[in-house]
């Protein structure tokens, strides 16, 4: 049994005789332990709850909180709250997607970066703001993106 499968099984064992009303708590638990919802985990949950996998995927994609890709070493959160929006977070996001060559919700091929959009980080005074593994970068603009990510890449070398 693979490492991931063991974790999935351990989590499911904590929900014996669960019905479909336990779906979201189980998914949250999975994501907490795995960092994301793997295909394997969704299939196992579907067997456990006797629910089609497509239904579970449908529910999980409805909520913003679930991700389906393994997070990268550096998890990038781009704030798209009102203040950040007004100060141009949409173009910042575009620039980051271009720089990392991934779309929101995805992880780069080298597993270094993953990208997520969040509603508001609560740091409106620093807008537009992005957070990388909890490190805040304030008043970012399209021109500063390249430098920020260069910096993280350099740490790896």
């Amino acid at each position: 049994m693979s490492y991931m499968k063991t974790i999935v099984q351990e989590i499911l064992d904590q929900y014996p005789n669960a019905g479909r009303d336990s779906l979201i708590p189980i998914l949250q638990h999975m994501q907490e332990k795995l960092g994301f919802l793997s295909e394997e985990s969704v299939i196992e949950v579907s067997k456990h709850l006797k629910m089609p996998a497509s239904k579970i995927f449908g529910v999980a994609t409805f909520y913003n909180q679930f991700r389906f890709n393994q997070p990268g070493k550096y998890h990038v959160q781009v704030c798209r709250g009102t203040a950040c929006h007004v100060l141009g977070s949409a173009t910042v996001l575009d620039e980051i997607e271009k720089n990392l060559k991934i779309k929101t919700g995805q992880t780069t091929k080298d597993k270094l970066f993953s990208l997520e959009v969040v509603a508001c980080i609560g740091a409106c005074g620093l807008a537009p703001v992005i957070s990388i593994n909890g490190e805040f970068h304030a008043k970012v603009g399209t021109e500063s993106i390249k430098g920020i990510f260069e910096d993280y890449r350099n740490r790896e070398e």
């Binding site: 969704v42 996998a53 497509s54 239904k55 995927f57 449908g58 409805f62």
Partner: peptide, 28 residues
């Protein structure tokens, strides 16, 4: 009783797809 397809996503981005956006051939 197959449920190969389902509503995926939310709001204006909702569309109908299979589990994990695989092609129909890999679905049930």
């Amino acid at each position: 009783g197959v449920s190969a397809i389902e509503f995926v996503g939310r709001g204006s981005k909702t569309f109908i797809d299979t589990s994990f956006n695989h092609g129909l051939n890999l679905s049930t």
